[in-house]
Design a protein around this nucleic acid. Structure first.
Lengths: 214, 214
DNA sequence: GCCGAAGGTGAGCGAGCGCTTAGAGCGCCC
DNA sequence: GGGCGCTCTAAGCGCTCGCTCACCTTCGGC
């Protein structure tokens, strides 16, 4: 899985669930603009311009600018949760599953950095009801990671003092990748994913911390 | 140092270097507003209102709204760098100094969360020259932490595969505390600081990871 | 070939933005 | 005690924002 032939260059997104085509183009344009300048600093004219349309076209497909952010956030969180869930419910020891979860989650935050940035840092721009929906998805992400750590504790693979605090730290470490990762920097998403998987296994006291990279 | 009697409740800030009094009140109001809603979503009317003044009063003490952010960011980064530098250049083994650096850095991000949030997440709102100045301070923060890890490697206390990558991860972990920490949550800044110091010592392969908490 | 729905445009509305200006209040030194 | 400098306010300027509206084009079904 760590050698998956995904196209990370240019940050191409699989937004195929968004139809029609014009709505998808607007959404992709919004992701880029929100990631670059933030939700509040992005204008509807900028989004429409990037999609090659007039400002009014946006309102044929979306009721408000906030609905665009909501759709992006919803799809992004579904994707992030799916990644963690796949890893958590896979086969193998807790050590292997935690390494898989961290490396794939980090790879997503690095490779799909623009999406991840919007998903992780623009939550406060949503209204109360939309935010509540997204917060529920985040809690499920937390539960997936906590589940792996608890299983590792039960099997004797891991040893941590504070399961919830460590879970928070692991997720926090992965999420912050979206803040600092540079596509033109020295590291590929795969490399960061492997490094972080190793660091996290050390954090939970897994004995064969170096084994997962092989 | 981990039992320092600092006032974390209410997030009281030591902005005594900002004079006169009205300028300080405006700056504190701006920190709160920026932390709550973000720089772009905050209006000058909101800042002035929180400080109990009219919108025009802001422009007596600051040329623009951006200058306010710049001053906040500058002072905040100076403070953050000071914390890391004090820990890095203190006495004791690399293990002790790294634990000290992480716990005090985390304590600052949790206890002074509003300031830290502005400092760490509103960098992009600055203009090019102001941003360049701040980025230089960040690089110094990185150098301080990397220095401790390198010394720990040289003395045999630590064992990491990628010093720069691990440095980045350690700083990233600490910084992200400002995103998720909740003043009304179950953990105090001291507790998070102690937990994170332990986690970081595990990350760098320090043998007595549990010792620093005593 | 005509029609209605779907998708698009240009112009522009009301509101709120960052910021400016004219002038008022007030303490302080000569 | 009068002039001056510092601080602050009320009013508002010019601009851009999110969003709307009247109208235009394209195209499949009959």
């Amino acid at each position: 899985m760590s050698t998956a032939a995904e196209t990370t260059g240019g940050d191409i997104e699989p937004w195929e669930e968004v139809t029609p085509d014009a709505a998808r183009r607007l959404l992709v344009a919004a992701v880029e603009a929100f990631a670059e300048r933030g939700y509040h600093a992005t204008t509807t004219r900028d989004i429409a311009g990037r999609a090659g349309m007039s400002p009014a076209a946006l309102y044929i497909h979306y009721k408000t600018k906030e609905e665009l952010l909501h759709r992006i956030s919803r799809i992004g969180h579904d994707r992030a949760l799916g990644i963690l869930r796949t890893a958590a419910r896979g086969e193998g020891s807790a050590t292997e599953r935690l390494a898989d979860a961290v490396s794939s989650f980090v790879r997503w935050h690095a490779g799909r950095r623009t999406t991840a940035r919007v998903v992780q840092y623009e939550l406060d721009a949503l209204g109360p009801e939309a935010r509540a929906e997204i917060v529920a998805l985040r809690r499920q992400c937390d539960a997936e990671v906590r589940g792996i750590i608890e299983e590792g504790m039960a099997s004797g693979e891991f040893e941590v003092r504070d399961v919830q605090g460590t879970t928070l730290a692991v997720l926090s470490l992965c999420i912050d990748v979206a803040r600092w990762f540079n596509v033109n920097g020295p590291r590929t998403p795969d490399e960061v994913g492997a490094l972080y998987a190793d660091l996290v296994l050390r954090m939970v006291g897994a004995e064969d911390a170096g084994a997962a990279q092989r």
